[in-house]
Design a protein around this nucleic acid. Sequence first.
DNA 1: AGCGCGAGTATCCAATGGATACCAGTTTTC
DNA 2: GAAAACTGGTATCCATTGGATACTCGCGCT
Lengths: 122, 122
Amino acid sequence: MIPRHPHRTEDCRAVSDILQRVGDKWTVLVVGKLGDGSMRFNELRHAIGGISQKMLTTTVRGLERDGFVTRTVFPTIPPRVEYELTDLGRELLVPVYALGEWARLNQRRVAEARMKFDAAVE
Amino acid sequence: MIPRHPHRTEDCRAVSDILQRVGDKWTVLVVGKLGDGSMRFNELRHAIGGISQKMLTTTVRGLERDGFVTRTVFPTIPPRVEYELTDLGRELLVPVYALGEWARLNQRRVAEARMKFDAAVE
DNA sequence: AGCGCGAGTATCCAATGGATACCAGTTTTC
DNA sequence: GAAAACTGGTATCCATTGGATACTCGCGCT
């Protein structure tokens, strides 16, 4: 099944870093939505649903910082801000989707294990 | 209004869930180490390095709960507790390694984007 | 004058992350 | 014979983060 990798701790750290980067509550949702094309702030907000302004701001700012999205301000009245994935962002989507696919397929197994464990602890 | 997005939000949530599950500071390190074979508590602790007892306990307990590792207690003196990946855990490693590989290859690009951003904000 | 829009800050409180100290039983060391 | 150390853990505490709510700012509408 699994090719046996040499597990260098430093490499694991890199994995850990990127996973932490991407592993918060909103990041993948934002990146996923932006995968469909560029979006404005509130458009994104409504598309995701349940995210507060502050969290969306922090999330997109972080993604911009790491080079995953671009932020373009049109100085119109009222202001208009477009967010779009960069090439790096789109490339990131590939492994993220692979993990997502795994998650989708194995959701049930995890849920079952969890129920079993919680029942045993009781 | 009808969402025009091919990315169903519920699927993105599943991705987000599993990423949050796996996206904390220690989980991938633990799973990565266990990828080499079963390990005892302190063995794991030293192999990882820098993790506190409490965090290792919480991490492995969480992984056990979700069915990614098994925990076997040998009632010897002194006690001996072995942790080992389940099939589910080993399967999870596949997409996680894919993401890890991406992370390893693109570390530099992210770091550069970050430096550029920080310099611009300044 | 007052309201609302768009894209944010500012403020505050709750939840979490994580370091440190402590527990229990046995064996080793001084 | 007392102290320490090994095993795998809790318990406690504080700093950081997550996130809801309220406010800002420039403007156009009524």
